[in-house]
């Protein structure tokens, strides 16, 4: 994760790089199939829009999130923010050119359209 390209991010101190290499987790996801698109929801709390990276390339979808961690450790701690990484394999019936991604309240939502050939097509029935 230390080598990931982040736009407009300040140069990381060597210690930060070492820590980032240690703490990267896979976000929990839901994936469901809608009429015209697949929808992926991923819990990525702590990630601001500037720290999000979604790449759909050929048969792979990669989501990455970078969190801003507090400078000092809490006095009492039950959670620790970590960077996120998870990759998914896409099948050929998806149209990655028609992908949208939104981030709201720590939940990433990605919609990938189905290819036109697998979308349901309504057949008009004529009565004679």
């Amino acid at each position: 994760m230390a080598t990931q390209t982040m736009t407009a991010a300040p140069p990381a101190r060597p210690r930060d790089v070492a820590e980032r290499a240690v703490r990267t987790v896979a976000p929990l996801v839901d994936i469901y199939e809608g009429e015209k698109a697949f929808v992926l929801l991923a819990d990525m709390p702590g990630v601001a829009p500037g720290g999000l990276d979604v790449v759909a390339e050929r048969d792979t979808l990669v989501i990455r999130g970078r969190v801003e961690r507090p400078a000092t450790a809490p006095d009492y701690q039950e959670f620790e923010l970590a960077d996120y990484y998870r990759a998914f394999t896409l099948t050929e019936d998806l149209d990655t050119g028609a992908t949208s991604a939104t981030l709201r309240d720590g939940v990433l939502r990605i919609e990938i359209s189905k290819s036109p050939r697998v979308q349901p097509k309504k057949i008009a029935v004529r009565t004679e």
Partner: peptide
Amino acid sequence: DFSPTWRWPLTGEYPPINLTR
């Protein structure tokens, strides 16, 4: 590292919290 960010098993409560004084 395939665990979620939070640590439910420890306290068994949701949501997990951090506290700084």
